[in-house]
């Protein structure tokens, strides 16, 4: 075939795409490109990430026993934990005072973190959770080191675990609040 057909069709594709963007409701309705475009005007509107999205790590401080498992398994060793043992009042009257691990320091350096999720996965005490929150960039790299109070603040943004697709045998876990 000659030079014409394929090239004309191509023009049609681009024209159609432009019209679909400018007139998302059909050609006779008023144009509204901001609806037709697939992009999102970021600071003004925000896209909700998937509930499982790995945005930032949240720490449920009460659950953490400073067992160091997460710090050991982290592939780039960016979790810093220090703790000490404390005597807690006995659970029953007259019992022995309990040993309790108290966290002194729990820092995650998000400048090093590669968001692999291994720490969250290995934590045996349900102390770490993923939050899909992603707006925590800082002008200074050192500020990306989140200490335990900052990590605990993220707990509010942790969504509930989703239910599973049919046919699944996994149990839906609960986020401790």
């Amino acid at each position: 075939m000659g030079l014409v057909p394929g090239m004309i069709k191509g023009l049609g594709v681009t024209a159609k795409s432009a019209i679909e963007t400018i007139f998302p409701d059909g050609p006779l309705k008023p144009p509204s490109p901001s609806k037709g475009a697939v992009t999102i005007q970021y600071p003004h509107e925000k896209e909700a990430p998937a509930p499982r999205a790995r945005g930032v790590i949240a720490l449920q401080e009460d659950n953490c026993t400073a067992c160091m498992l997460c710090a050991r398994e982290c592939p780039d060793w960016c979790i810093y934990i220090e703790g000490h043992k404390e005597k807690a009042p006995p659970r029953r009257a007259g019992g022995k005072p309990r040993q309790k691990n108290k966290l002194d320091r729990f820092d995650i350096d998000f400048a090093l973190c590669m968001y692999c999720g291994i720490c969250v996965e290995v934590c045996p005490f349900d102390a770490l959770f993923w939050s899909p929150e992603y707006e925590f960039s800082e002008p200074r790299i050192a500020d990306l080191l989140h200490d335990k109070s900052r990590l605990a603040e993220w707990m509010e943004t942790v969504p509930d675990f989703e239910s599973y697709e049919s046919g699944s045998e996994a149990k839906v876990r609960k986020v401790p609040r």
Binding site: A18, P33, A37, T39, Q41
Partner: peptide
């Protein structure tokens, strides 16, 4: 603008 519309985006806003 038109180029952005062709590519399903809005261009400078």
């Amino acid at each position: 603008k038109l180029m952005s519309f062709v590519q399903s985006r809005l261009g400078p806003m």
